[in-house]
Design a protein around this nucleic acid. Sequence first.
DNA 1: CGGTGCATTGATCAGAATCAATGATCGTGG
DNA 2: CCACGATCATTGATTCTGATCAATGCACCG
Lengths: 247, 247
Amino acid sequence: MPDVPGPLPKALSRAADPALQPCAACEVRELGLCAVLEANELIETAAIARISVIAPQQPVFFEHDDADVLFNVTKGTVKLFKLLPDGRRQITGFLGRGDFLGLAVNDVYSYSAEAVDEVHLCGFPRKKLEALLKRYPKLEHRLFEIASDELAAAQEQMLLLGRKTARERLASFLVNLLRAQERRNEPGEQIFLPMSRADIADYLGLTTETVSRTFSQFKRDQFIRLREGARVEIADRARLEDIAEGA
Amino acid sequence: MPDVPGPLPKALSRAADPALQPCAACEVRELGLCAVLEANELIETAAIARISVIAPQQPVFFEHDDADVLFNVTKGTVKLFKLLPDGRRQITGFLGRGDFLGLAVNDVYSYSAEAVDEVHLCGFPRKKLEALLKRYPKLEHRLFEIASDELAAAQEQMLLLGRKTARERLASFLVNLLRAQERRNEPGEQIFLPMSRADIADYLGLTTETVSRTFSQFKRDQFIRLREGARVEIADRARLEDIAEGA
DNA sequence: CGGTGCATTGATCAGAATCAATGATCGTGG
DNA sequence: CCACGATCATTGATTCTGATCAATGCACCG
């Protein structure tokens, strides 16, 4: 079920009362946490889920906050990050449609989360979700799967941060975005970059200047073309994939 | 139950038939995956567990191998790493007593694992473990907890790799080792560093030379003292903790 | 005792950071 | 509709941290 882009979230436009029946019309049902649920189980999940809308650059939660709510992203992009006391920032991930956020250790978020553009979230109160987990082991198993996937992605990012050059980092970033888009069933050679150069820099362990210079390099080399509306056209995917893996 | 160091694994010396009854005498029972199991459940777990011993620098498994077995470390240190085609290596973690390894995506290991020193592992065949998971949701929940903890640690390491200086990285490494030791109930101001400078460098995203120089700096500054047998005495923990967090 | 591998220290280099200026884009209000 | 200011992106000049290249030291082992 591919998504038709539009200014209004489908979840809100499809259902009479989205607060009570958010899941039935949910456009990311087959992507996120709920992928493993049957129709009747979904109804129960709907009962505890609440949709919220976050404006660009507004916080979702802060590191060290009580992890009272876990979220599925239904629209927009969220950035996760950690800060050092002097303000240095490391973005540990960008999340999009279908991604899950809020995994916690000791019931406390281990990172801060902020909206990149307008974000729609489907929130599950932790305590209620835990009750549901007890009854549906499938759900717990799904959470484990999600955490395992994220762990593998985190290890890949450690390889990037510890051992790749600026060029290789940016190439990896672009290729990964393309792949994430494909996983969400949104194919195409264009990728959407709602985040600023500063965000990209803090994700790749670089500065905005280096990110900008490397973009220019890739343009000059004809690997990419910058398009309207923060879009990037991937002109030579194979080459970027080679660069990304260090060739 | 603190461990008494020795050439023979306790699990082997305590039980008559360690292959059949490895868990009853397991010294990391309260640390690892099995922490959540009751005595009778442990017996079933014992039935599928197999102990193995890996010599220093020998592989446990390779990235992309079928993830047929998951492991708990009962003795020694294991390093996890990913490689780039040209040989650049990023170590994503060092595991010790009680740590779990083998989390997989699509039933394939997402990293390679190698023994640092002599390592004893308690292996659970994946298929048999999965059957057990179905019957003991507690076990699945524990796996989820473990994955969540590792994910938080991975994000902390991304902050280190992306945004910390060489000094801050080494200080973080030493402090984290001290804390890991405390979690395993092995307190003390000394930490044991079984891994080479090259391993530390590949973990911290540095070179052996930089690691060595930074060690020398810390010695000169009286934060640490190098002791016999690859041991390091932490002389000024508070100062190292400050440096680690960027102060 | 010599050899091998690892750690340390020194000299130089390079990639990315920093400092600085200019250019593009967007939203706002006149 | 355009002018203005603010913000963000790009480009250039210079610096600096850590990498690379090179030599020496040290410990363990046959």
